[in-house]
Design a protein around this nucleic acid. Structure first.
Length: 574
DNA sequence: ATAAGCACGC
DNA sequence: GACGTACGTGCTTATA
């Protein structure tokens, strides 16, 4: 099952102490550069990479050209511009590793890469989503000689993409997406630094007050941020009845869930919760975000990572702009600090409604859930009506809340115990709800069973576009790891198909915006949401475009709904 | 440096 | 008897 078998096992892997030394043709003077450009002009595929001080080209696996880059920006730009005829040629294929980085570096010098992209990192991500995709790692595992590593990986991964039916996903989705993400990153997001500074000062005062209250009740000062110290204060010193189990390191658990259970035991508990959420907001967002504003353009430039998650979602870091608070009032204040870049712009947020449930309705073919979506019903209310056996107009808010938890639980492969814990109901009540659920949604139950069976037979599951997730523990004798694999068998195709869908939408929107030479910018993706910094003149046309491309990216046999909102900050637009 | 525990998002 | 809802990033603390 291990991928390595596909490459003939470990036999070809060199001993770890042998250092592979590649030989380079050093390119220095103009005549050598012209010679290289000539050979690049003649080839239809070449490997490339660029870093701060050097770049390499290889027109075949053996001849690797290395060029040192001038420190002076203008000289560097002049040198790079000599290669623009190569990078502009959309008939040529460029082999790279994490090409988004190469695109971003060249963009700083005013160059575009218009070649067909062939990114080894992303190829490997599709072939083995959960492995390491770094060049160092791939070099250790796959490189068999001293020829160009990117060419070696290209040869191997090309065959594997074909064998695993991943070519469509690679060429038509992931490769076009590379450019989209590079553009989104360079577009950047404006934040209201002064607003955040003000919030920070208010939070500092409030935190100091809470600290004092906590120390007073505890009768001592201690580090509230230390779960270890906190646990000892709560459960030893203050003698609050301790949770049944300690953590694996022998500490008292003090997570939010634990504290909620003892919230009425002592007023210190609420203070702790307030302290935790406030210090979290302050350190992770309010104080951190301003420090990440670029000195060049005053904007925040996140990284969107295309080869991280096990399911096909993107991730975001430095900073993570996919987990900006929205749940609490204090959190929402932070979201308000995300603003349009100038007075000519306005934020537009477009999000898919209930996309994962629509996908499970589509994939399962369940008639009850499909008809709920086709009739445009409130899906959670409809589920409540079915599960509790009442008319939809008689559904109480508690019934709806419970049904919503079940719908979410279904996507995540939840158990009766888990539902009972979440809803604070008895396990037998939870079982009853789940039993009724699957009686009403027979197709969903069948789909879940089918996914698990498929995984047990083939060792993987796949999304609507054939993105795979391998589940090597699916037949494990250890029920804990097997159950985990079974939950992944249910969730991965749903979460992953949703990721497929929004990626298609992003590509189509990007291409259309580019074709129309629009001033507006796509700036964020948060799994089921896209955010745009819209030039006000373009608001109507872009809104229509976004709605159309998102709705029609990957049609389902149930309707797809997209909600659009505008605002002078992200909270307002959300 | 690295892991643990915790909290933020979807 | 244990386990118990998917996917991430990043902070502070504690330990090495």
């Amino acid at each position: 099952m291990a991928t390595l078998d596909l490459f003939g096992g470990f036999d070809e892997e060199p001993a770890a102490n042998i250092v592979k030394a590649r030989e380079f043709i050093i390119v220095k003077d103009d005549s050598q550069i012209n010679e290289l450009i000539d050979s690049l002009k003649k080839c239809d595929i070449f490997s490339f990479h660029i870093e701060t001080r050097e770049m390499t080209f290889a027109v075949n696996p053996n001849d690797i050209y290395k060029i040192e880059l001038p420190v002076d920006d203008e000289k560097c730009k002049d040198l790079l511009t000599k290669f623009s005829c190569i990078f502009n040629d959309n008939e040529k294929t460029i082999i790279g590793h994490n090409i988004k980085t190469d695109i971003s570096i060249l963009a700083k010098y005013g160059l575009e890469i218009n070649n067909k992209l062939w990114d080894c990192m992303i190829a490997h991500y599709l072939i083995e989503p959960e492995l390491n995709h770094s060049l160092d790692y791939l070099n250790d595992i796959y490189a068999t000689d001293n020829t160009d590593i990117r060419w070696q990986l290209y040869d191997k991964f090309k065959a594997l993409l074909s064998e695993n039916d991943l070519e469509n996903l690679f060429h038509n989705i992931e490769m076009p997406l590379v450019r989209v993400l590079a553009k989104m990153e360079s577009n950047g997001v404006k934040i209201d630094i002064n607003g955040l500074k003000q919030i920070s000062e208010e939070q500092a005062k409030e935190i100091a007050n809470i600290e004092n209250s906590i120390y007073e009740i505890a009768g001592t000062t201690f580090n509230i941020g230390s779960p270890k110290q906190l646990g000892e204060i709560l459960f030893d010193k203050l003698q609050i009845k301790a949770p049944a189990k300690k953590t694996k390191t022998g500490q008292y658990p003090t997570g939010e869930e634990v504290l909620q259970k003892i919230i009425n035991e002592n007023p210190i508990v609420q203070h702790i919760l307030d302290y935790r959420s406030l210090t979290k907001l302050k350190s992770t967002y309010v104080d951190a975000l301003p420090s990440l504003v670029s000195p060049y353009d005053g904007l925040i430039h996140t990284s969107f990572n295309q080869a991280v998650t096990a399911t096909g979602r993107l991730s975001s870091n430095n900073p993570n702009l996919q987990n900006i608070p929205v749940r609490t009032d204090k959190g929402r204040e932070i979201r308000k600090a995300f603003v349009p870049r100038d007075e000519n712009h306005i934020l537009l947020a477009a999000d898919y409604s209930q996309i994962e449930l629509r996908i499970i309705a589509h994939l399962s073919g369940d008639q009850a859930m499909q008809s709920a979506f086709r009739e445009g019903l409130d899906i959670h209310a409809d589920t409540a009506a079915r599960v509790y056996g009442v008319d939809i107009k008689d559904v109480t808010s508690e019934m709806r809340r419970n049904a919503k938890a079940v719908n979410f639980g279904i996507i995540y492969g939840m158990s009766a115990f888990g539902l009972a814990e979440r809803l604070k109901i008895s396990r037998s009540e939870a079982s009853e709800i789940i039993k009724n659920y699957f009686k009403e949604y027979v197709g969903i139950q069948e789909y879940i069973d089918k996914q698990v069976d498929f995984a047990k037979q083939y060792g993987y599951v796949e999304t609507m576009l054939g993105r795979r997730r391998y589940l090597r523990d699916i037949n494990s004798g250890n029920s804990v790891v097997r159950n985990f694999a079974e939950r992944n068998a249910i969730n991965a195709p749903i979460q992953g198909s949703s990721a497929d869908m929004i990626k298609i939408a992003m590509i189509n929107i990007h291409n259309e915006m580019k074709a129309r030479d629009m001033k507006s910018k796509m700036i964020l993706q948060v799994h089921d949401e896209l955010v745009f910094d819209v030039h006000k003149e373009e608001l109507d046309i872009l809104s229509e475009l976004v709605k159309d491309k998102m709705t029609n990216a990957l049609p389902l046999n149930v309707p797809i709904e997209v909600n659009l909102n505008t605002g002078t900050n992200w909270l307002e637009a959300h």
